[in-house]
């Protein structure tokens, strides 16, 4: 069986994130990294192979600007066998509905029995892409999975919901999103980083995927940002640097002053 892992390019955790006041879109000019939740999905694909499943290939799929190639190179270093970058000026500014349509079309061409995604993107904090992709592909879905096992052609998943844990089974082919609790991603070795450059990284356009042009891009987005504004003002908290090791005294003084102890 083959596994496709969707990987989003997001601003790196250390970069200063902002919305561009002109385009009202996320400013993507700074450093970027693979969405950390998607790295857990990729790690799970590798572990499925290591646990003994007959995995033919692991393909990383990304939709993004040309710069997203760097993110796919990282995915190849982490263990993907090949990568596909869907990039096209016509796709820029696509909303969630448009992006799900494109990703489903791209993944649909990879002959993948299992499609894995992170449960949310670290930049947008939306938990929606897996369910939208599954609907386009008409495949069973399990989201926010904390434990995943393959038993023949069936995935057995455990996921946290509002009342505890759900145990869910689905036959392949299926779409699964994973929580960051599912595994601890490995760091790529120097050898793997060097080897990544020799693995296939294919670039495809909207035309290659035979997409309906009326469903993609900023002009066709069904969700449109009207305004961006600062959040409501709030009082600044007290900040204590623990440099001198006297922070415990300061906290106790604060609690005492507030009548909390």
């Amino acid at each position: 069986m083959n596994i496709a892992v969707c990987v989003k390019e997001v601003p790196s955790a250390t970069s200063q994130r902002r919305l561009d006041p002109g385009t009202k879109r996320l400013d993507r000019s700074g450093d970027s990294e693979p969405n950390p939740f998607d790295v857990h999905a990729l790690e799970e694909a590798i572990q499925i192979r290591e646990r003994g499943a007959d995995v033919g290939e692991i393909v990383a799929v990304c939709m993004g600007p040309g710069s997203a190639q760097r993110v796919l190179t990282k995915a190849l270093a982490l263990g993907a066998d090949r990568a596909v970058l869907v990039t096209d000026a016509a796709l820029a500014g696509s909303d969630i509905a448009g992006t799900a349509y494109v990703l489903a079309a791209a993944v649909g061409k990879q002959d993948a029995d299992l499609v894995l995604l992170g449960q949310q993107a670290a930049d947008a904090d939306c938990y929606v892409m897996a369910a939208a992709v599954a609907d386009h592909l008409r495949r069973p879905l399990v989201t926010q999975v904390a434990e995943l096992r393959l038993d023949g052609g069936t995935v057995k998943a455990k996921r946290q919901a509002e009342h505890g844990y759900d145990l869910i089974e689905a036959p392949l082919p299926a779409v699964i999103s994973v929580s960051d609790a599912i595994n601890t991603p490995r760091l790529p070795s120097i050898k793997a980083i060097m080897g990544a450059k020799k693995k296939p990284l294919e670039t495809v356009s909207a035309a290659d995927l035979e997409l309906d042009a009326a469903r993609v891009g900023g002009d066709n987005a069904r969700s449109v940002v009207r305004e961006i504004s600062p959040p409501p003002a709030k009082s600044e908290g007290l900040r204590i640097e623990d440099a001198g090791g006297d922070s415990a005294e300061k906290v106790v003084a604060f609690l005492s002053e507030k009548g909390l102890i």
């Binding site: 969630i96 509905a97 929606v128 369910a131 609907d135 969700s223």
Partner: peptide, 10 residues
Amino acid sequence: AARLGAGIAC
């Protein structure tokens, strides 16, 4: 949202 091709705000 996928089924209807509709915009979604999270």
